[in-house]
């Protein structure tokens, strides 16, 4: 066998091993959660409120609380992240400004989630005196989602065919028209993908919202912007701390299964958006 064929085969084998390891980790995780979680999941589990500190009843308010915070965070982050990506892609002329934006976005992405939580506690709860507020939690989640959404939107905007904007300008379109009629519609897939990936991450976060936006039990829907909600991650955390109680542990697995399902749903939506909404996708 020639040296080239041997190295081809070695690279292919390395690729298969890496793929296999990835699939094993994902498969083991999904299997464990599905195996233990499905025992707890039923229609009642999904629609009933929790009782007995979560050891009995369902997870209705936790699902609603998680979705409420995640959707609000998405609504908050969307205009800011899109505007930042548009500015970076279509408006910023100075290389220094562009580098600064890139560095900021990457740095924000690397900040540990607990740091976001502490920031929210100090700024909103201690300094601004908001008290426990699900809306403040959404703001913090939006801050966490910002780099992901910005990065995905920016990547889509930068990957537009090179002459597409120039063709718009050559037709006499203003910068605003080029942004609204060319850049934004043609990079919608990146914006939506970023939003879905950000949502998938935000809905599973515990640390950033633990101190400022959630209660472990005994809450339902908030009446306004103030007041805490209960979310799936904090509910799982609370139940996991009652590890000696088999009912609590079973419900923790059930809640984990539902949480993974929601994350999977958003990830799938991101995957579909990436191809379906891309006007230059091979599919078209």
């Amino acid at each position: 066998m020639s040296r080239r064929a041997l190295s081809d085969r070695a690279f292919r084998l390395a690729g298969y091993i890496a793929l296999g390891l990835c699939l094993c980790v994902l498969g083991a995780l999904l299997f464990a959660i599905a195996y233990a979680g499905l025992k707890a999941v039923s229609f009642d589990f999904l629609v009933m409120p929790s009782k007995d500190f979560g050891a009995a009843g369902g997870i209705r308010w936790q699902i609603i609380g998680s979705l409420l915070m995640a959707v609000t965070a998405s609504a908050l982050v969307l205009p800011f992240a899109t505007a930042l990506a548009v500015y970076r892609a279509d408006m910023a002329r100075s290389a220094r400004v562009k580098r600064f934006i890139d560095l900021s976005v990457f740095s924000l992405n690397g900040i540990p989630s607990i740091a976001y939580g502490l920031f929210g506690l100090i700024v909103f709860v201690n300094i601004l005196g908001t008290g426990l507020s699900w809306f403040v939690g959404s703001i913090i989640l939006a801050m966490m989602m910002m780099p992901t959404v910005t990065h995905c939107a920016l990547s889509a905007m930068q990957s537009l065919p090179s002459g597409v904007r120039e063709n718009g300008y050559a037709l006499g379109l203003t910068r605003r028209a080029v942004i609204t009629r060319i850049t934004l519609p043609q990079s919608l897939h990146g914006i939506v993908t970023g939003l879905m990936i950000g949502l998938a991450r935000a809905i599973g976060e515990t640390a950033p919202i633990m101190f400022i936006a959630t209660a472990f039990s005994g809450v339902s829907l908030p009446s306004g912007l103030q007041g805490p909600v209960s979310t799936l991650p904090t509910h799982i955390l609370a139940l996991a701390q009652q590890a000696t109680n088999p009912d609590a542990l079973r419900n923790a697995w059930g809640a984990s299964f539902v949480l993974i399902g929601l994350v999977f749903l958003f990830s799938t939506a991101a995957f579909i958006a990436r191809t379906r909404l891309n006007p230059y996708s091979e599919r078209l």
Binding site: G163, E166, N167, A170, P185, Y280, L284
Partner: peptide, 17 residues
């Protein structure tokens, strides 16, 4: 206004979606 008065066509055709 100038660009509308002086239309331009580039080397590589670029049609919009």
């Amino acid at each position: 206004r100038l660009r509308a008065k002086a239309g331009m066509v580039f080397q590589t055709p670029c049609v919009f979606p």
